[in-house]
């Protein structure tokens, strides 16, 4: 429990490493279907990591995270539409564009609290969704076709390449969120979540920290969106739809909100459940709902909570 500079892995951290190692070996099975699903999981996990910074550590239940995910995808698609396929440029535009969007929407949304915050984040995201369906230049309902990006010799149109790039960025996302939460900034953010009034009286302005968390989360979600555009070879309004925001929240709660590795477990279990249940019935959500309630009931910290092992206390510590 005593951590000085060194990383002490919890049970959940070990389980996550095992899981990631398994994913690294998975393409050896040579199943295109599996690699495609795997890539999808990594991307959703990355988006959920970013949402976790807001919900799990910032205490900010954003119901509009699809906005940044979709914006990242559209940034790549728009550049592609105008003939720019270079990875660095496209990804920088996706990350930067989403961060800027988060700055603007966050600055407005963070003025209100509680249920109003949930509503306003949802409203902004839906506005973007409708905007994307209405604007001809963005392809309207059909969206925009994307020519996959290249990073030098790495061509993301190759299934395996995209698989490993996504896996790598997921790992980076896990490390980044781990460091961020344990940093000076991170503990102020968590402190504000725990006791805002106390933090004000210590001299912190919660608004600044929350807004910055918003921007960082937006950037990370934009990165996930850029990968999604490459995976689908498409950016469509679906990516901005509220149901994406909802799915991300479900994955977060399922995996363990406020746990670094929770988003990974959440995305994996969500996809597994979806694949298995949708094989039996098209109304799989009907069964998934109660299952989710059950899981949260058994372990308040989601799947990650099942591994908590030696650190039973609090949402903050799990890695």
């Amino acid at each position: 429990m005593k951590v000085r500079g060194r990383v002490a892995l919890s049970g959940g951290g070990v389980a996550a490493l095992v899981l990631l190692a398994g994913f690294a070996l998975l393409p050896l099975a040579q199943q295109p279907f599996v690699t495609r699903i795997g890539t999808g999981i990594f991307i959703l996990a990355l988006a959920t990591i970013s949402l976790n910074l807001l919900v799990g550590y910032g205490g900010l239940v954003s119901f509009g995270h699809a906005a940044y995910f979709g914006a990242g995808a559209y940034a790549v698609a728009i550049l592609s539409h105008y003939g720019t396929h270079r990875g660095w440029i496209a990804f920088a535009a996706a990350v930067g564009g989403s961060a800027l969007l988060a700055l603007i929407l966050g600055a407005a949304s963070l003025r209100v609290r509680g249920v109003f915050f949930i509503m306003i984040t949802l409203a902004f995201a839906q506005m973007l969704y409708h905007l994307s369906t209405a604007v001809e230049k963005l392809g309207g309902d059909d969206g925009l076709r994307v020519v996959p990006n290249s990073f030098g010799p790495l061509f993301l149109g190759e299934r395996i390449t995209l698989y490993y790039v996504s896996l790598g960025l997921l790992c980076a996302g896990l490390v980044i969120s781990d460091r961020l939460v344990a940093s000076h900034f991170g503990r102020v953010l968590v402190g504000i979540r725990d006791n805002e009034r106390r933090m004000r009286s210590l001299g912190y302005n919660p608004y600044h920290y929350r807004l910055l968390a918003f921007v960082i989360a937006g950037a990370l979600a934009g990165l996930a969106g850029a990968l999604e555009a490459n995976l689908d070879a498409y950016a469509s309004p679906e990516l901005l739809h509220w149901s994406i925001s909802g799915d991300l929240l479900v994955m977060l709660v399922l995996g363990g909100s406020g746990s670094i590795v929770g988003p990974l477990f959440g995305a994996v279990s969500f996809q597994l459940v979806q694949q298995v249940l949708s094989g039996f019935t098209s109304h799989w959500m009907l069964y998934f709902g109660p299952a989710l309630v059950l899981i949260v009931f058994v372990s308040r910290r989601g799947v990650a909570g099942l591994f908590a092992g030696t650190r039973p206390h609090h949402v903050r510590g799990g890695r």
């Binding site: 961020l180 000076h184 503990r187 102020v188 968590v190 402190g191 106390r198 009286s201 920290y209 903050r316």
Partner: peptide
């Protein structure tokens, strides 16, 4: 009014940090 999910030392360190730079990531 304390920060329940932090240790006592962390509570005080966070208070001390308010006078310095907290935008370290």
């Amino acid at each position: 009014s304390v920060l329940p999910s932090f240790t006592a030392l962390e509570n005080v360190a966070i208070a001390a940090q308010a006078r310095g730079r907290s935008f370290r990531f």
